[in-house]
Design a protein around this nucleic acid. Sequence first.
DNA 1: ATTGATGTAACCATTGACATTACACCGAAA
DNA 2: TTTCGGTGTAATGTCAATGGTTACATCAAT
Lengths: 140, 140
Amino acid sequence: MQISSRFSVAVHTLLCVVVFKESYKVTSEFIAGSVGTNPVIIRKIMGQLKKAGLIEVMAGTGGTNHLKKPEDISLLDIYRAVDLFEDDQLFGFHDQPNPDCPVGKNIHTVLNHHMVEAQQTLEQKLSNVTLANILEALPK
Amino acid sequence: MQISSRFSVAVHTLLCVVVFKESYKVTSEFIAGSVGTNPVIIRKIMGQLKKAGLIEVMAGTGGTNHLKKPEDISLLDIYRAVDLFEDDQLFGFHDQPNPDCPVGKNIHTVLNHHMVEAQQTLEQKLSNVTLANILEALPK
DNA sequence: ATTGATGTAACCATTGACATTACACCGAAA
DNA sequence: TTTCGGTGTAATGTCAATGGTTACATCAAT
């Protein structure tokens, strides 16, 4: 299955915070209007970004700040904040291979190694792109 | 969400075909016994591997052959045979960004570029591993 | 105190994964 | 030519995750 759109929404959310925080009070409703979804969805994602130390949210009064500079926030940071799988494994694996079969007995060890490597290259690619890079590429 | 276990099951299936086809008639039930699942699941995956030109299945009599040498079957071939997403996109994207917002208007173009690149590095990694590599690594 | 916002809980609908039963069809071999 | 074992596939069911929505307690500042 596809990677959830939470990731793109989270990036969108952070972009809104960085771009608009000087001019507007960036509330969940404000962001939801830009993303095209429900404020509660945004609040949940803001909660994950907050837990990851990427933003702070003003309880009561409302509004959001980013806690790191855009050049210090990578896409991987955002991805990890909102898309956590079981055991951090991007690839799913069938969990009942037959231990009495020479193939079933060893496939997990052998195949998993390649899956982990593939996942790592993907994550490294994401870690090389920062929010600042995205901002530069956004037409003003 | 995680990538479906269909991929690992498909690799397992092909390994069974290659390893056991001289000694046994490799049926969906045989493979299901090694994978630890239901024969119908295996038949569906065999159907996808067949459509991808990786195997042939003997209707009526039963049994399976691989149509390429293990060194000519990459993990990417298998992955593509069984894990196809909408538009081939590994990453999901929210589909209603606000076109009247400078962020919403452009985020898809800018962010998608990096998503595609990340996906490509993952797929390239998979394309560099063959079924023969897996076979070599399997303890005999 | 009132106001506007957050943090959550509780639902709900939809979707995909995986499993299972059932059965039509096929091909070889008795 | 009937039988037998296997494939292809439809129909169903269960389960979990996604995305959406309403509701409401709580909070901070005015």
